[in-house]
Design a protein around this nucleic acid. Structure first.
Lengths: 223, 223
DNA sequence: TTTTTTCTACTGGTTTACCAGTATATTGAT
DNA sequence: ATCAATATACTGGTAAACCAGTAGAAAAAA
């Protein structure tokens, strides 16, 4: 299964290898990925970058089949990167990579168009499968990721109502422990207005006091 | 610089290489570390493990000079691992490794006896230096880690006053958005008592309302 | 055992949050 | 230009949080 007759490979390889670009700011991970993929003749790691800017510049001129994209880049966040890459090169398949697994981020990345998502504890096999699947325009999500997505989908039914800019702002100030009066002073509006916003927030988020409001805001990373 | 005359190496290597054990649950990182260290003749990667249990079993019989220890293992947490390893083999030098950098964890690990700490975005050079430094019984901390430690020392002066069990419990209930009366019912105590606890909490933590209390609790992971 | 800490509980008072309903000016979208 | 959404602001009332001081009982530490 692993070692095909070399004659076959060298003489009649119908498909050229899948060209892969690695984007990760951790040299260790880059080396690790390269090593894990070095045995695999169907994949060729084209090059790598450690930040978003260089990656986008490269993609101005060059193209690859699949990008292994770390979510935590120093300059541009992963979610944004997905959008920027696909705006430039819509046919590229992006495979998200991260150490931890936050449902909200994974969801955002899927919305933006990643074809797959792996945690960095993925095995060599998973990695190879993922690359070939996304290259064939299928989705691929690691087993842990699938579990996480399943959980978050369950909650997604009563998703957060979107808050207005003003509401988000006030929510953040509330979470900082500021009272209605203080907030009103800072925003140069009436305390009564602040209270109205607070009430609307609690109604929208279906909670009954400031404590729950803050907890929910922290949990959902609205602030 | 890379290729020394092979005669020199094979005939007169005064010091045997530093034996290194890698412990990390991410295959990618393991491969990456091995690759980064493969050029370095002064270091020999003995073997690797992906969890704490196997590592400790190995150390029952074998010994190495330096352990590269990931903080986030699936079974035993890094802080505990350091203690367990050093109880068994006090002469081993442990170099902590993690992707992110939480001051409290780094501090705990130092207290438990790690000789160095690197983030996973360390370069090949940093890694080599770190290994040789800790092998010589010096401390080595990556530049980012040093910055983090400096910051945390500054804050450490007014560290959190330790809360009693009851206080911690009530703090958690407050953070869940429960009112004084509800908490009192749940704990079969008077609402007045709950309020006293709340007041003590606020005093201890130097905040002036429940909102700040919750935010602080979430931030400091007291709950 | 004695001392200290923790948990318990109260009085009495101020401030703030919370609830319900209403209303107007200003944006933003179609 | 018109309609919907947003941000603004009010009245009036109830409930809960917050503040200060006190104090007894239980548990833990000395």
């Amino acid at each position: 299964m692993k070692a095909q007759p070399s004659t076959y490979i060298s003489t009649s390889m119908q498909h050229k290898p899948i060209s892969v670009l690695i984007v990760d700011d951790h040299p260790m991970v880059i080396e690790g990925l390269k090593t894990l993929l070095s045995d695999n003749e169907t994949v060729k790691v084209e090059t790598h970058f450690t930040n978003g800017k260089d990656t986008l510049e490269f993609l101005e001129k060059e193209i690859v089949d699949v990008i292994l994209l770390d979510v935590n880049l120093p300059d541009i966040n992963g979610v944004e990167m997905v959008k920027l890459i696909l705006e430039k090169r819509a046919t590229i398949k992006i495979l998200g990579l991260s150490t931890y697994s936050e449902p909200s981020i994974i969801n955002q990345m899927i919305k933006n168009g990643v074809k797959g998502y792996l945690l960095k504890n993925a095995t060599s096999d998973e990695l190879a499968t993922a690359i070939s699947q996304v290259h064939d325009d299928n989705f691929y999500f690691g087993s842990e990721v699938q579990k996480i997505l399943a959980d978050s989908v369950a909650q997604e039914s009563k998703d957060l109502p979107k808050l207005t800019r003003r509401e988000t702002h006030i929510l953040r100030l509330i979470a900082e422990g500021k009272t209605t009066n203080i907030i009103a002073e800072e925003l140069f509006i009436s305390p009564l207005t602040v209270e109205t916003h607070r009430r609307n927030l609690m109604q929208k988020l279906e909670v009954s006091n400031a404590a729950s409001l803050i907890k929910l805001a922290v949990e959902k990373k609205l602030i």
